[in-house]
Amino acid sequence: MSDRRPNRFFRNMTAKIAAVPMILTALCVFVGGTVWTIVHSFTDSKLLPRLRWDGLDQYERLWNTNRWIVSIENLLIYGLCSLILSLIIGFVLAALLDQKIRFENTFRTILLYPFALSFIVTGLVWQWLLNPDLGIQSVIRGAGWIGFTFDPLNNSKIVIFGVLIAGLWQGTGLIMVLMLAGLRGIDQEIWKASRVDGIPMWKTYLFIVIPMMRPVFITTLVIIASGIVKLYDLIVAQTSGGPGISSEVPAKYVYDYMFQGQNLGQGFAASTMMLLAVLVVVIPWAYLEFGGKARG
C-alpha cells in the first residue's frame, strides 16, 4: 500500500467516465447551445449562421413585426387563461375525487387519459369537433337552435380560445393528479381537528388546506408556465396559425423563420426572447424553492 494520497482526479474515475454523457449534454448542448443561439441572435444570419454583427437589429425587427406581436398576445391570453383555469379546475376535480367516493379510479382514469395523447392528436380531434359545418355547431343548429354560433377556429378574434378548450382538455388531468397527490399528503389529523373545531369543509379547504399546499401550487404553476411557452404542436395541428396569423405563437414563429423562412437571425432572436420569458418564471421559483432551503 502506498502512503501517498491518490490523485483527486483519479478518485471515482469510473463514475466520472460513466457521467460523460451527462456532462457533455449539460455543457455542450444546454450551455453551449444556448450561448451559441444567443450570440447568433445578434448577427444577420440568413440561410446559414454567420458571425456578422448586426447589433440589436434582429430584436428591433422582431418587435416591429406584427406576427410576433400577435404571437406574444396570443401566448399571454392563452397562458393566463390556461394557468388560472387549469389550476382551478384541477384543484376542484382533485378535491371531488378526494371525498372517499366510489369509482375513484374510474374517474381518474377518464380525466387523465387525454394527457397520454399527443398535442397533434388533441389538435386534430378538436379541429373536427369544432368544425362549423359538421361539428358541435351544426349538431346544435340541427337540434332546432338555428341561430347558434360556435365557430372559434374560423373567427380570428376568439380562435385562441378554441385552442384553449383543446389544451385544457389535454392538460387538466395532469394538474388534477398533482393536486390530488398534494391533498393526499395533508395530515389526516388536520381534517379531524377541523371537524372537532366544527369548521365547515369549504372553509377548511380555503383557509387551512390550500395554504398548506402552497409548495404544490407553486411547483404546478411552474410546470404549467414552462409548458405554455413551448406551445407549438397544438397550434400546428388545430389551426396552423390561422385564420391568417391570428393564432400564431412564438414557438411557431421560431420554427418558421429558422426552417422555412431561411431567416435564422430572426429565429434566434425570437427563441432568445422565449428563453428570457422562461427565466422570468423559473429563476424566482428556483430561488424560492432551493435558495430558501439553504437558509433553513
Partner: peptide
C-alpha cells in the same frame, strides 16, 4: 452538472434546435 441539467429541462427547445 446536475443543476445545469435540471435547468436545461426548462430551456425552451427552440433555443437549442439549431445548434
Amino acid at each position: 452538472f446536475f443543476t445545469i441539467l435540471i435547468f436545461g429541462a426548462f430551456i425552451p427547445y427552440q433555443v437549442m434546435l439549431y445548434p
